[in-house]
Design a protein around this nucleic acid. Sequence first.
DNA 1: GATGAATGAGGTTTCATTCAT
DNA 2: GATGAATGAAACCTCATTCAT
Lengths: 214, 214, 214, 214
Amino acid sequence: MPKLTDEAFASRRDHILWSALRCFARQGFHSTSMAQVIAESGVSAGSVYRYFPSKADLILAAGDWVLGRVLDAADEAVAIRDEASPVAVMRVVFERIHENLHPDGEDRSVVALSVWQEATRDARVAAMLQHNYGELRARVRVLVVRWRDAGHLPVSTDADGLATALFALIPGLIVQHHALGAEIDSGAAFGAIEALFAGAEAAAHAARDQAQDV
Amino acid sequence: MPKLTDEAFASRRDHILWSALRCFARQGFHSTSMAQVIAESGVSAGSVYRYFPSKADLILAAGDWVLGRVLDAADEAVAIRDEASPVAVMRVVFERIHENLHPDGEDRSVVALSVWQEATRDARVAAMLQHNYGELRARVRVLVVRWRDAGHLPVSTDADGLATALFALIPGLIVQHHALGAEIDSGAAFGAIEALFAGAEAAAHAARDQAQDV
Amino acid sequence: MPKLTDEAFASRRDHILWSALRCFARQGFHSTSMAQVIAESGVSAGSVYRYFPSKADLILAAGDWVLGRVLDAADEAVAIRDEASPVAVMRVVFERIHENLHPDGEDRSVVALSVWQEATRDARVAAMLQHNYGELRARVRVLVVRWRDAGHLPVSTDADGLATALFALIPGLIVQHHALGAEIDSGAAFGAIEALFAGAEAAAHAARDQAQDV
Amino acid sequence: MPKLTDEAFASRRDHILWSALRCFARQGFHSTSMAQVIAESGVSAGSVYRYFPSKADLILAAGDWVLGRVLDAADEAVAIRDEASPVAVMRVVFERIHENLHPDGEDRSVVALSVWQEATRDARVAAMLQHNYGELRARVRVLVVRWRDAGHLPVSTDADGLATALFALIPGLIVQHHALGAEIDSGAAFGAIEALFAGAEAAAHAARDQAQDV
DNA sequence: GATGAATGAGGTTTCATTCAT
DNA sequence: GATGAATGAAACCTCATTCAT
C-alpha cells in the first residue's frame, strides 16, 4: 500500500478515536478494554496501536477531544454574543456543549467525569485538563469583565471570583445531570442566576443614579 | 473462635475502609489493587473479603463514606445558621467538607471524582450517589426557600433553579480545584455570588417599597 | 493457607526453576514462552510470578543456577586435587560440570550458550556472568600458580595468560560439542594439553639441571 | 518494471544484510525486530522480505556471513604461514577475525554468541554452524599435523585432540572477552600456549637426540 | 475467625508477515 | 519491483477472588 494521505490518516485516526469515545462514554476509561475499542472500531489491534501508541495516548486524545469541543462551544458563544450577559452566554455554551458532544445522538459528556478522575493519575491528562480549563476559564473571565465594564455590574465586582463561580456551573451541572438525572433542569439554573444578575444590575444602576444625584 | 463483638467488627471494618480510602485518594478506584488495600491495612486478604465481599462493595462503602461526610457538613451548616444567606451557608458547607475529609491531613475530596465516574458503571454506586446528592440538594433548596420567604429574594424566585445553581458550586469548585490548582480561590467565588445576592436583595427591597408606595 | 515454611518456599521455587531450565535447555530463553514454563511446571501463572517477578528474573536465576553448578564443579576439583596438574584438574572439572548439570539425564550445558548471548542484552545477566566467570577464572589461576610454584612449570610462566588459555577450554569445548556433536572428544583435547604440559615440565627440569651444573 | 541486474540485486541484498548485522550485533537475534532492521536499512518491509523470505533466513544469512569471515581469516593465515607454529597461526587468525568483523569499527563477534545459541533452536543454523566449524577445525588440524610432521612435536602427538584444544581457544577467548571484558588478554593466552609448545618442542628434540645417541 | 498461597481469566502490547496499490 | 498499512496470533503479566490450613 502506498503512503496514506494526510486526510486518509486523519480520517482513520478519527474513526478509531470516535469508536473509543463510544466505549469510554459507556464504561469509563478503565473498564473499557482495548479489545472492546478494537471490536468497536472494526480494525485490527495493530492498526489501533499504529494510530495510538498506548491506551494512555488514546485516553489522552479522547479526553482532549471532549474538552476541545467544550472550548469550541465557548469560543463560538463568546465570539457571537457581544452584548449578552455572561449568564446568557454560559447558557448558550452549555447548550452548544451538548450539541457538539452529540453529533450522533450519543452522550459524550460523561467522558468529562472520566477525564477529571484520570487527571489525578496521569500527568499528561492533568496537563491537558489544566490547559483546556485554563483557556475556558479565561473566556469566562472575559465575559465578566466585558459585562462589568459595560456598566451592568458594579465596578467593585471581583472578576476572578465571579468567573470561578460561573465556570463552576459547567462541571456542577454536568455532575448533577449524571447524578440526579432528568429532574435537574439546567435551564432553570441559568434562569435563576440570570435573575440574580438582573437584580444586581438594577441595584447597580440605582446606586449610580443616587451617586449622580449628589 | 469466639464471635467478634459488634464493636470489634465495626472497628476492623472501619480500619479497612480508611486504609482503602487512603489508597483510593491517591490513585482512584481502578488503579488501586486489592493487594494495595490489603498491604495498607495490614490485614490478610481473607479478612478484607470477610468485611467487604468484593472490591465493588469496598468502592461503594468508600464512596458512601465520602459523600456522607459532605452531607454531614451540609446538615451541620444548615442546622446552625438559621438567618444566614444560602451562599454564606454554602461557603461554610464547603469549608466543612474539607475539614471532614481531612481528619488526618490527607485530601479525600478527590475520591468524589472517582465516585462520579464510577456511578456511570455501577448501578449501586449510581443509586448511592443519587441518594446522597438528592438529600444534599434538598438541603440547599431548603436554604433558598427559607431565604426567599424571609424576604431577601423576590417572591418570583425559582427555588429549584437557584438550588441547582448553588449546588453546582460544590462539584464545580472541586473540579476547578483539582484541574487548575491553587490559582482557584473558592472563597472569592462565594464572595462574588454573595455580592450578586446582595444586589438582588437591594433590588427586591426597592421593588417592594415601590409597590407599597402605590 | 498458613505461611509457607522456608523449605517449602525454596522447594516450590526450585521446582519452577527446574521446569524452566528444561524449557530453556530445549529452546533457549527467548523461544521459551512463559506459558510453556507454566505448563511444564504444572502450577498457575500467578504462582510462577509469585516466585519470579518477571521472565528476566527467571532467566537470571536459571543462568545463575547453571553457572553456579560450574563453579561448584571447579571448587570440588580444586579442593580435592592438591598435587594434580591444572589440566588434570580441568579435566575433572569438565566431567563434574556434566554430572552437575545432568542430575536427571537432561543436558543443561546448552543453557550456557543462552547465558552468554543474554549477557549482551541484560545488564543483570552480564553482571552475574562476570561474577561467576571471574570466580571461575580465579580458581584456574590458583591451579596454575600452585603448579608453577611446585616447579612443574618454568618460573617465567605467565600465570594470567595460561589461566586464560586453560579457562578457554571450558566454553571452547562446550561450543564445539554443541556445534560439531559427538565427533568432538574433549578427553582427547585434555590429553593433548597434558602432553604439552609434560613436555614443558621435562624441558623445565632439564633447564634447571643445566643451570645447577654450571 | 525492468528486472534487476544480478549486481544490483546482490548489492541491495548485502545492504540489508549489513543493516541487519548491525542490529544483531547490538541486541542479538531475538531482541531485534524486523521493524528495526527495516528502519536501519532504510528500505521498505516488502523489500526486505523480497530478499530474505523470513526472519529465520536473515538470521541464517547473517550467521553465515560472520562465520564465513572467521573461515576466511583461517584460510588466509593457514595459506600464508607455512613454517609457523599452529599457535602462532591461531594468534594471527584471531587477530584477522577481529579485523574482518570490524570493517567499520563495529564489533560483530558478539553475533557468534547468538549463532551458537540459535543453532540449538534452528536446524538450518545448526547445519550452517556445523559446516563452518567443521571446515575451521579441519584447518586447525592441518596446522597441527604439519607442525608435528616437521618434527616440532612428538610423533605420538594426538592431532585430533590438539586440534580440538587449539580450536577451543577461539570461542573460549571470545566468551571470556565478552564476559570479563578488558581484563582478558588474549595475546597473553597465545603467548602462554606458545611457551608450552616451545617447552614441548625442546623435550621432543631432547628425546630424539637421546634416541639417536643410543 | 484469620491467614496468605494459589488460581486463571483477561489485560495491554508487540511483531513477523502479507498484499493492495 | 517497491511500498508501507494492515493483520492477528501470541507474548508477558496482573489481580480479584478463593479456600485449605
